[in-house]
């Protein structure tokens, strides 16, 4: 449920207050931008989609019924925007997986497993990537995720399970290929 102050801000936003719109942006945009950055792997695309998300959210704020938080409302729009964008990008063969690896900056203390998981995330289907990020990056519970992606909590659980399995499969294949390559490069003598 919304907090009282959030309710007030949304009401002012409904009345077209630019100040309230900015306040909602300030409150939620870091999470939204971070999700979109991880979804697309591109700071430029994340900026575009964040902008689309808020323009759409403000334009449709009348539809926000207050049952979930306003952050969930923006998450929902952002995920839809990202999935639509990635569908178009796939059609256009923009090779986002490569850009995901190229354009995202990782902290200096990132471990090998973290790097591997980041790379593997770029290879799972966008809808699965979204649900993994919502749960394990942004910490949404199943109920909140179900509100974001519009499906029952049981479906969230099964989709998350599938997404984790897919991520693991990609990592296993990646490690397997690496070991094969290592074996090829460094044949045992004797």
């Amino acid at each position: 449920m919304m907090s009282e102050s959030e309710h007030d801000v949304v009401e002012r936003c409904r009345r077209g207050s630019r100040e309230a719109q900015r306040e909602l942006f300030e409150r939620t945009s870091e999470r939204i931008y971070r999700l979109l950055l991880r979804m697309t792997g591109s700071a430029d695309d994340a900026s575009d989609l964040t902008q689309d998300t808020y323009l759409k959210g403000f334009a449709q704020i009348e539809k926000f019924d207050g049952r979930a938080s306003i952050a969930t409302w923006f998450y929902r729009i952002a995920v839809n925007e990202a999935l639509q964008f990635l569908r178009r990008a796939k059609t256009l063969r923009l090779k986002l997986e490569n850009s995901a690896r190229d354009n995202v900056d990782y902290p200096a203390d990132t471990t090998a497993i973290q790097l591997d998981v980041q790379a593997a995330l770029g290879c799972v289907e966008p809808a699965e990537r979204a649900i993994l990020l919502l749960r394990y990056q942004d910490g949404l519970d199943y109920r909140a995720i179900s509100e974001v992606i519009g499906c029952p909590e049981g479906t969230v659980a099964s989709r998350l399970s599938r997404a984790r399995d897919r991520l693991r499969d990609i990592l296993r294949k990646s490690y397997g290929e690496t070991e094969e390559n290592d074996a090829t490069v460094h044949p045992k003598n004797g």
Binding site: F25, L37, S47, T50, Q51, V104, Y106, Q114, R135, Y136
Partner: peptide, 21 residues
């Protein structure tokens, strides 16, 4: 596996984004 997912440099929102919106 899942604890490795959120590890990413703090992705700050571009300062010009609100201006564009």
């Amino acid at each position: 596996l899942t604890s490795a997912i959120p590890n990413l440099a703090d992705a700050g929102v571009p300062s010009s984004l609100w201006t564009s919106i």
